[in-house]
Amino acid sequence: MSGTAPVSAAALEPVRRTLREAAQREAADILEGAARQARELEDAARTEAAGILAAAAAEGEAAARAEAARRSARVRRQAHELVLAQQNALRQDLQRRLREAAVALRTDPRYPELRERLREQCRQVLGPAATVRESPEGGVVAETGTRSLDLSLPVLAALVFESAPEASSLWRR
């Protein structure tokens, strides 16, 4: 096997043994070091994984809490919008009824007097030269040159409605 003489081989035996033992010791050390390193890596990885898991859980919890808060707020917004829509419907209904009641004033026995007062009003505002005609919906409409004044009953009803802020108590709680 080896190219050395048997005498030399015997003489080299202690060297071989020592080298082998040193190599074995070194291999054992390396093995142990690797095992220790593997253990450490594993521990670090476990710790890191636990950290990531905890962070992810906390993040998820926070996100879920935020999402729940958003969802709850959104539902409250929808509920609020329903209430507002209902209030608006009531307001529009009131406006419509007021308009109908105003138009119905044409059959009131006091209507001719009211119409005369409105005519007078138009002349006061636009001057005596103003042309005043009756509006088909009741009340009057006056014109002079490029200026005009609409005192028809629906317009007057709308103005009364808008100039009375306390009316809002009728459609708000």
């Binding site: 009003q121 490029t146 200026r147 005009s148 004044l149 007057l156 103005l159 009364v160």
Partner: peptide, 8 residues
Amino acid sequence: IGVQVSYG
């Protein structure tokens, strides 16, 4: 009630 003259 705030009637307004309109200008054309």
